[in-house]
Design a protein around this nucleic acid. Structure first.
Lengths: 205, 205
DNA sequence: ACCTGAACACCGTTCAAGT
DNA sequence: ACCTGAACACCGTTCAAGT
């Protein structure tokens, strides 16, 4: 007459996974460890998630939303160049604050998280609107890809400890952001078009 | 009177690991699978490597050398802007040709490969010489970090399938490379210095 | 000097049995 | 309706025993 009532919740399970992720990386997020943390045995987790992969994906979605929220105000900044500076800074801060979470989102391992979608459609649209104001509609997508690629590349190398030649990493980041904004300046657009044609030949051969 | 003679070699083991990596990703590189491929049982591998981690590291070193060789001619190019274009193109081709190998080199998971060193001291020095000719000695390191971060970010997102908004990805790559070269143009250096001071304030607050 | 089977501690996952 | 112990197939790794 008293069927076993839930002793935990989907949210609690994801939160437990998140805590384990920050502490010991993705490897530490085992079904047993997550279950223990919410006061349950590992097999019970299969009532809420199809398996470990599904749990990791839910965790990734949770983190994605957090990143989206962190970037939203920066994307809303009016001046497009200043918005790029802010987005870059917030993005980097997120990675520095939650490196394990960042790694999960941007993991190169497709099998781990499934279809990669670190930036929500929301964030992507916002960034596109921003680059459109910076370089015009025609090259907005390409400029957004430049900014995204740089930001991801920089912070992923930074949190991996890949900058080992000394120097000031903060300076390198700011220098790079300014160089990119300068390189995207409208007056250079026609020159870029020519260079693009040349570039294609190089990439293909 | 006949102690068991070696039935395989360190090189053969690494080659087997490489083949498994390209076929099924890092997860497919199990001690059992590697051993089977070289005609031996899993425990025998411990005569040549301390454990799976050491084997993966040897594999990463192997791949690093391959990448170094692929980039060397491009780095040697005389015209620095053209050298940047070539390095970027070769780097991207490497990632596209051997995505699993690329992922291993640039994995964000420090535990998997130990101290990250995708670019050899050799490649790093070459790239620095190149950016020094492009922007001067004072900002050579920062410019090199911009180029490296962009290239890594772009190709890692590309092979992860993270560019999902349509458009031509080749164009975005070439456009970005040209924008970066333009942004690094010497005549902009003083403007960048001012911007840098501003940028630092943003990043810190 | 290298190879092997057997064993161990750990995974993720399944499932019949409990409440 | 959710929880559990037991079991299974898989890992990486150790080690005594073989040649």
């Amino acid at each position: 007459m008293s069927p076993a009532r839930a002793r935990t919740s989907t949210e609690a399970v994801v939160a437990a996974a998140r805590a384990l992720l920050e502490t010991g990386g993705l490897d530490a997020v085992t079904m047993k460890a997550v279950a223990e943390r919410v006061g349950v045995r590992a097999p019970s987790l299969y009532k809420r998630f199809e398996g470990r992969l599904a749990l990791i994906r839910a965790l990734a979605e949770d983190i994605t939303e957090e990143l989206r929220a962190a970037l939203a105000p920066a994307i809303a900044e009016e001046d497009p160049a200043q918005a790029v500076r802010l987005v870059a800074a917030r993005f980097r801060e997120f990675a520095q604050t939650s490196p394990a979470a960042y790694r999960l989102l941007f993991t190169n391992d497709v099998a781990a998280v499934g279809p990669p979608g670190p930036l929500t459609a929301d964030s992507a649209a916002g960034l596109l609107g921003l680059t459109e104001r910076l370089v015009g509609r025609e090259q907005a997508l390409e400029a957004a890809r430049l900014i995204t690629a740089f930001a991801h590349g920089f912070v992923s190398m930074e949190i991996a400890g890949a900058f080992r030649l000394g120097g000031n990493v903060d300076d390198a980041f700011n220098y790079s952001v300014e160089a990119i904004i300068a390189g995207l300046a409208p007056q250079r657009r026609s020159a870029l078009k020519h260079a693009r044609a040349r570039g294609r030949t190089i990439a293909v051969r």
